[in-house]
Design a protein around this nucleic acid. Structure first.
Length: 846
RNA sequence: GCGAAAGUGGCGGAAUUGGUAGACGCGCUAGACUUAGGAUCUAGUCCCGUAAUCGGGGUGGGGGUUCGAGUCCCCCCUUUCGCACCA
């Protein structure tokens, strides 16, 4: 008489093998099969396969998408649910330098580990469509799309000021730099002029902004993209320089304040600085410009409080009055925004005010501040003053009038400016996509033919820049580097590589048709599957991957290669999973296993420690590995806990005891169907109809309804609560009709698929529960016959009444007034008003 | 500084359009069954008072609207996240 307890460790590998063998999750590609059902494309942000392996944060999103994928399949959809690897990138290259192995070897090993870990969780991915951005079959098409961009004039080389990271030996995109540091490693970044590949994302600024509105995305992500694109409306104004032919443009959002412009400022990098500086000022200006050039962005922003600058000795002519206005150089004006020059209006701009005070420049108010205003620059509403033909006008009218004047007199025009810059698209790295271009000896850039792709990464002896600062690809042999053109000219290959974001710009399209050797994807597959119906991933990509991918998608749209203007219809960000960490007063961290509770204090051995919730990190000894969780409680418990912890979008701490709770729930579910003493079916299972257990039947239908709705809206924590309620009820019930058990298992199946399959087959079902039909609920069975009504006196709860569900107002009022408990609180007073909310409560007001 | 989101038991978190605050789970307490329990089952568990019935208080703080506020409005505090010399 062998005990047969719930044992995920035998049951989970068994069902995973059966799913594999039967190709249970193969996505159909046959046109007839596709046409027969509606589609659903549910996508995860594919991971970068790091050496550290998966942490419990990854599977949170993956579990949510898997539950949705399984639900949609059961509801009769063709589901596309793929997984792949964002496999080019810096860490593998650094590991290669460290360990002396090829990045491809290291990446391959990491991918194998990630795949193994992900497969243990029983996700219903179609592994036939797995993609890896570093394989030549894939990056061939990344290069192909680059050629499309080049053809359309959207890729160009230019000598531009770039973010150079000396520690990494490469340039970085604006999006990768924050506070003058590389966002991933914190290494400082400095400004340098270099000839680099750029992508004209700015051409798409307006569309990237406008097309955000209808998307079903979290509002804060849309807002972050809007801020990043940074649209502002204003005017471009031309200032001529006194006594010369030179002139410069400024951009301003406040053309109405032009009469308050008492000086102008050029950025230290502005090309005009060297041309207009007077001899007397030359030494001082040159020293200032040189100093600014040596500052990193970090230093430049750190010193933000103290404004510095020098006078060029030159004057500009005020566009309206013709008065001379001194021109200064100051590093609070950035070359990277607008035209790198400003008209300074200290009266209405605090930065200009600070600068004017420091250097004794005049201040003129052109907007009347309210009475009693004692601040410095005034930025609020008010009528124009000291402004000639604008006097008395409110700001919006004054702006329009000034723009009209400028346009009439050829002194400027209305203009929209964006914060978004063109995307710096090349890196001095080895482990990335080679550019499909050649450079002729005369400097001509020659794109390769489409049929010359892929340009494969050549072997090199070292993954470091060369002695003379060339990118690692310059180490390749001359047989790779040197090419003879059909016309006999010599050319060399581009030695920069594409940034790590390139491959992820279009991977969701490759999944549609992952083995196509003629095209990146077929038009038929694209038409059927796009757009992505649900995309889940971390918020860290809000302005990187998600902006870049939208840009490429729009280019592909303009090329007629995709049929939707946006790739991701619905986006959802899962919150980060945190963990408790333990520290003593010295700041030393202790592993959670070492910590025990004594009284109400925590100790690690003899040392008292305090606890806090932090991001998981190796150095804090608080990383939770999915492998450990699965080894202890199984994949189903892991899946369930990931979703039961709390709302998907929220940050929340991992609690080991929480996993035990859901594990117990799975055990109770097992015992509902299986008699643990002999392994046979539980004796309480009956063949009687569901209606033989009317109370349980009602709970079942409520459960189907709630789980279905909550799953669709990604409120999976409450869906799981409801399943727990069902199992608690079913455990209490005298009998369990098979009809009810069968329906419940199908509800459970998307969440705990291994256990559901096992119990389903034990009930004698032949097919896979993964392919079973989602049960329908009966609305009539979702409401109780008798409900509890609250009786309040003056808004305070005084009694509860059990009443039929359809009791009318009059009945409820009568019953409430007859309540003895409530009556006590009336203290003989006459009800002034009685409020009846059918189905809820009766409030007696005295 | 600007913008956004959020503050509910010992803990994670539930609460249709404003309508029983604390679902579900953890932890804790007591009991049962056990050779044993870090297994399982049963009961209890927001706080204060009470043997209990019951009463009072309670969703960061203060005010307001309402028969009724965790939910709506105003002010303040705290936390988290973006952006930040953007002209």
């Amino acid at each position: 008489m062998a005990k047969t307890v719930y044992d995920p460790h035998t049951l989970e590998p068994k069902w995973q093998a059966i799913w594999d063998e039967r190709q249970a999750f193969r996505t159909p590609s046959d046109p007839a099969e596709l046409a027969s059902k509606p589609k659903f494309y549910v996508l995860d942000m594919f991971p970068y396969p790091s050496g550290a392996g998966l942490h419990v944060g990854h599977p949170e999103g993956y579990t949510a998408t898997d539950v949705i994928a399984r639900l949609k399949r059961m509801q009769g959809h063709n589901v596309l649910h793929p997984m792949g690897w964002d496999a080019f990138g810096l860490p593998a290259e650094r590991a290669a330098v460290r360990e002396g192995e090829h990045p491809a070897t290291i990446t391959g090993r990491n991918i194998d580990n990630f795949r193994r870990q992900i497969k243990r969780l029983g996700f219903s991915y179609d592994w036939e469509r797995e993609v890896s951005t570093c394989s030549a079959d894939y990056y061939r098409w990344t290069q192909w799309i680059f050629l499309k961009l080049y053809e359309r004039g959207l890729a160009y080389m230019a000598e531009v000021p770039v973010n150079w990271c000396p520690a990494l030996g490469t340039v970085l995109a604006n999006e990768e730099v924050k506070d003058g540091k590389y966002v991933e490693t914190g290494d400082p970044v400095e400004r340098r002029n270099m000839r680099q590949w750029m992508l004209k994302i700015t051409v798409y600024a307006e569309r990237l902004l406008a097309d955000l509105d209808p998307l079903d995305w979290p509002e804060h992500v849309k807002e972050m993209q809007r801020n990043w694109i940074g649209r502002s409306e204003g005017a471009e104004i031309i200032f001529a320089i006194a006594g010369g032919d030179h002139s410069f443009d400024v951009f301003t959002t406040r053309p109405d304040t032009l009469f308050g412009c008492t000086y102008c400022v050029l950025s230290p990098e502005h090309p005009l600085v060297a041309l207009i500086t007077t001899e007397a000022q030359q030494r001082e200006v040159e020293a200032y410009v040189a100093e600014a050039a040596h500052k990193t962005d970090l230093q430049r922003t750190d010193l933000a409080k103290e404004k510095t600058g020098v006078f060029t000795g030159a004057h500009a002519l005020h566009p309206v009055t013709g008065e001379p206005v001194p021109i200064w150089v100051a590093d609070y004006v950035l070359m990277s925004y607008g035209s790198g020059a400003i008209m300074a209006v200290p009266g209405q701009d605090q930065r200009d005010w600070d600068f004017a005070e420091q250097y004794g420049l005049p201040i003129v108010r052109t907007v009347q501040p309210p009475d009693g205003f004692d601040g410095q620059a005034y930025v609020g509403e008010g009528p124009a003053i000291h402004s000639d033909f604008l006097d008395g006008l409110e700001i919006p009218t004054a702006k329009a009038r000034m723009i009209a004047w400028l346009e009439e007199h050829g002194a400027g025009n209305g203009r929209v400016e964006y914060r978004l810059r063109d995307w710096l698209f090349s890196r001095q790295r080895y482990w990335g996509e080679p550019f499909p271009v050649l450079h002729a000896a005369d400097g001509e850039v020659i794109p390769l033919d489409y049929d010359a792709l892929p340009v494969e990464l050549p072997p090199v002896d070292e993954y470091k820049p060369t002695q003379d600062g060339q990118p690692p690809l310059a180490r390749a042999g001359s047989d790779w580097l040197e090419v003879t053109l059909p016309d006999g000219r010599k050319a060399t290959r581009e030695t920069n590589t594409m940034p790590q974001w390139a491959g992820s710009c279009w991977y969701y399209l490759r999944y549609l048709d992952a083995h196509n050797t003629e095209l990146p994807f077929s038009p038929e597959a694209e038409k059927y599957w796009m757009p992505v119906d649900l995309y889940i991933g971390g918020v860290e990509h809000a302005v990187l991957h998600l902006l870049y991918a939208r840009f490429w998608h729009k280019v592909l749209y303009d090329c007629g290669l995709v049929s939707t203007v946006e790739p991701f219809q619905k986006l959802f960000n899962q919150g980060m999973i945190l963990a408790y960490s333990y520290q003593d007063t010295q700041g030393k961290y202790y592993h959670p296993d070492e910590v025990e509770e004594r009284g109400d204090k925590l100790f690690a051995g003899a040392v008292e420690v305090s606890t806090q919730i932090e991001k998981m990190s190796k150095s804090k000894l608080n990383v939770v590995s999915p492998d450990d969780v699965i080894s202890e409680h199984g994949a189903d418990a892991m899946r369930l806990y990931e979703l039961f912890m709390g709302p998907l979008e929220q940050q929340k701490p991992w609690q080991t005891t929480g996993v035990e709770g859901v594990y117990r729930f799975l055990q109770r579910t097992w015992r509902l169907i299986v008699d643990e003493h002999d392994g046979k079916l539980a004796p309480k299972l009956t063949d009687a109809p569901a209606a033989s257990e009317p109370e349980l039947e009602k709970v079942l239908h409520k459960t189907i309804k709630k789980v279905q709705q909550d799953t669709e809206t990604l409120q999976m924590n409450t869906a799981i609560s409801q399943m727990m309620i069902f199992v608690n009820e079913a455990t209490q019930a005298k009998t369990l009709p098979r009809e009810i058990a069968s329906a419940f298992l199908r509800v459970l199946a998307p969440y705990a698929p291994h256990l559901a399959e096992e119990l389903w087959s034990r009930l004698g079902m032949e097919n896979l529960i993964a392919h079973a039909e989602w049960p329908a609920y009966d609305e009539a069975l979702c409401v109780d016959d008798t409900i509890t009504i609250v009786v309040q006196v003056n808004g305070k709860k005084r009694d509860e009444l059990s009443v039929p569900k359809d009791a009318d107002r009059a009945t409820l009022e009568q019953l409430a007034l007859a309540s003895e408990k409530a009556g006590r609180f009336l203290e003989g007073r006459e009800p002034r008003r009685v409020i009846v909310v059918p189905g809820r409560l009766v409030n007696i007001v005295v």
